[in-house]
């Protein structure tokens, strides 16, 4: 049991370690401007990101992301329940939703900057504008798909509207909602970076862009690595939380498939 788990971890680490080793070896002694030795990138990582720019750039980025993502999920789920439960509202609003969500969110950045300004609000707004759609559409879909028998049961046992939504509709829709949240997570991370590449004075995106503009290629790579690690950690955290919260779903699913 422990051995097999160790083996799995070793297997998952093998390729990344091999790639880093390969990178280290091929880049050592490189004099090309845009392909600095990995050792210099590591130096830059240590210098800038342990921990000087953590407070000045990483924390602001993550704060914007967290607030934006939370708003996107909250708005998406709330609107999704409203729309999903009312067939007429759904039919009326779907064309608009499909139009809005097919606008590439980065395109909204100039618009958001003009309307909201250049502070944190506009960056958060951009994250919300991009991340809300998968949550919204999946919630609508999930709510629509709730088993009518469960709703009959809930009504027969006198569950009021609030409890029907909170204890029946939302949990029943939660597998779809969580899938939407997972998509929204990567969209949110991308938009966090993009929002910091214009009219910004800090953040991961700002830092990478300014390093690149000052031909600090080691610093650019270092920033990219930090962004990659952030994405990895956020996604991993999400998966761990999902596995816990949706334990019932996996259990029930296994029974259905058996």
């Amino acid at each position: 049991m422990i051995r097999s788990r160790l083996g799995r971890v070793a297997l998952q680490l093998a390729l990344p370690i091999a790639l880093v080793a390969l990178w280290w070896w091929t880049s050592s002694g490189s004099t090309q401007v845009f392909f600095p030795p990995l050792s210099r990138i590591v130096d830059s990582l240590q210098e800038d990101w342990l921990f000087e720019q953590v407070g000045s750039d990483l924390v602001p980025s993550l704060t914007r992301f967290t607030v934006g993502y939370a708003l996107a999920v909250g708005t998406g789920v709330a609107l999704g329940v409203l729309i999903g439960l009312a067939p007429r509202v759904r039919r009326a609003s779907l064309p608009v939703i499909e139009f809005l969500r097919s606008i590439p969110p980065p395109l909204m950045l100039p618009f958001v900057l003009v309307v909201i300004g250049i502070g944190d609000d506009s960056k958060i707004a951009l994250i919300v504008l991009g991340a809300v759609w998968p949550v919204l559409l999946n919630t609508i879909d999930g709510v629509r798909g709730v088993d009518p028998l469960m709703l009959d049961m809930a009504r027969s046992f006198g569950l009021g509207r609030g409890r029907r939504i909170g204890r029946v509709v939302l949990p029943a829709a939660s597998p779809k909602i969580v899938a939407g949240m997972r998509t929204a997570l990567s969209i949110g991370l991308i938009l966090m970076i993009i929002s910091e590449m214009q009219a910004s004075t800090n953040g991961l995106g700002f830092r990478v862009l300014s390093a690149q503009r000052s031909f600090d290629s080691a610093g650019t790579y270092a920033g990219v690595i930090v962004i990659g690690v952030v994405g990895l950690v956020v996604n991993f955290g999400f998966l761990v939380a999902e596995a816990r919260i949706m334990r019932w779903h996996r259990g029930a699913q296994r029974v259905v498939e058996a």
Binding site: D152, R155, P171, S174, W248
Partner: peptide, 22 residues
């Protein structure tokens, strides 16, 4: 006119009428 408090149902399809998340 609405499900009365005095009635309780048992449905055929228990796997769909019991909530799997509780």
């Amino acid at each position: 006119t609405a499900p009365p408090r005095a009635m309780a149902p048992v449905f055929q399809d228990y796997s769909r009428s019991l909530l799997p998340w509780m």
